[in-house]
Nucleic acid binder design. Structure first.
Lengths: 145, 145
DNA sequence: TATTAATGATTAATATATTAATTACTTTAC
DNA sequence: GTAAAGTAATTAATATATTAATCATTAATA
């Protein structure tokens, strides 16, 4: 097997490719894309978030978010509300239909997540987080061993 | 921090978002996208590969590959050659310019990879691979503990 | 061998990613 | 108080992802 396949980017991509289809088929039964679900999920414990806040939480690039929010709005799952304090900000608010869909889907999403968690021990999960965070840590704020 | 940010998909996406920019800025100085480099990289130790083989190695979906190969071909980095044995297959072959670019870029790419590897121990790297492969393993062929 | 089924690459349609530029609005600094 | 600098959302242009369908070719079967 060539070294290429054992690189860090390929390892991560391969893992994502391995786990996402199960999530995706659930999303599809509810007419959502991965990214659209992410936005709804980010709004779960919030009354409202600005577009920039959603972008930061979901890792979805701001320009992509415009279209994603357009489509969620067209589906009646969210609303846009321009801030009165600072008219540059747009607050994104889940509609009742959006909240209902969240409530319906979240348990199933968590069920899939749990099924993956059961493949490893809590210690392995901690290890995984520790190692990956060390990888992704920006160079500046890295502590030298 | 909401549980959402601690999910497996978000952990993996966050890590990729953290590490890819350094690769990407290198690719950009050579006028390549991530995916275009992946294809060249896959051809590194091969004289030629079919489109399907490249798709499987690089994890790039076959329909996306059509355009990616178009652009690599237009840049004079690869050539397409329809198989005589089975005219359904198309062999992808790096041109001399493609091989030169590979040879020039590969050390720099490996340098970036090494710099990430230095953040962790070889044992942590093995752990990481072991855990992630367990996550991505298809359910059917999973061994029960 | 004529038909049917399967396969590899491609096209089509829609959604998202990436980078740069723009627009509307706020804040700073002079 | 006004011009300049900064900020949040958006648009624009190009590249890629996702799913389904198509096209040409080959393999399988009656």
């Amino acid at each position: 097997m060539p070294k290429f396949l054992e690189s860090l980017p390929m390892l991560l991509s391969r893992t994502l490719d391995g786990i996402m289809p199960r999530y995706r088929s659930l999303f599809q039964t509810h007419g959502l894309t991965d990214q659209q679900w992410r936005v709804l999920r980010a709004l779960w414990e919030q009354k409202h978030l600005t577009s920039a806040e959603i972008s930061q939480m979901t890792l979805l690039p701001a320009p992509s978010l415009v279209g994603i929010l357009d489509r969620l709005e067209k589906k009646g799952l969210i609303g846009r509300l321009r801030s009165v304090k600072d008219r540059r900000h747009v607050h994104i608010i889940p509609t009742q239909a959006g909240r209902d869909l969240q409530a319906h889907m979240l348990p199933k999403v968590e069920q899939i997540h749990d099924s993956y968690m059961q493949r490893i021990t809590p210690e392995e999960w901690d290890e995984l987080n520790r190692i990956l965070n060390k990888m992704a840590e920006p160079a500046e704020q890295r502590s030298f061993a």
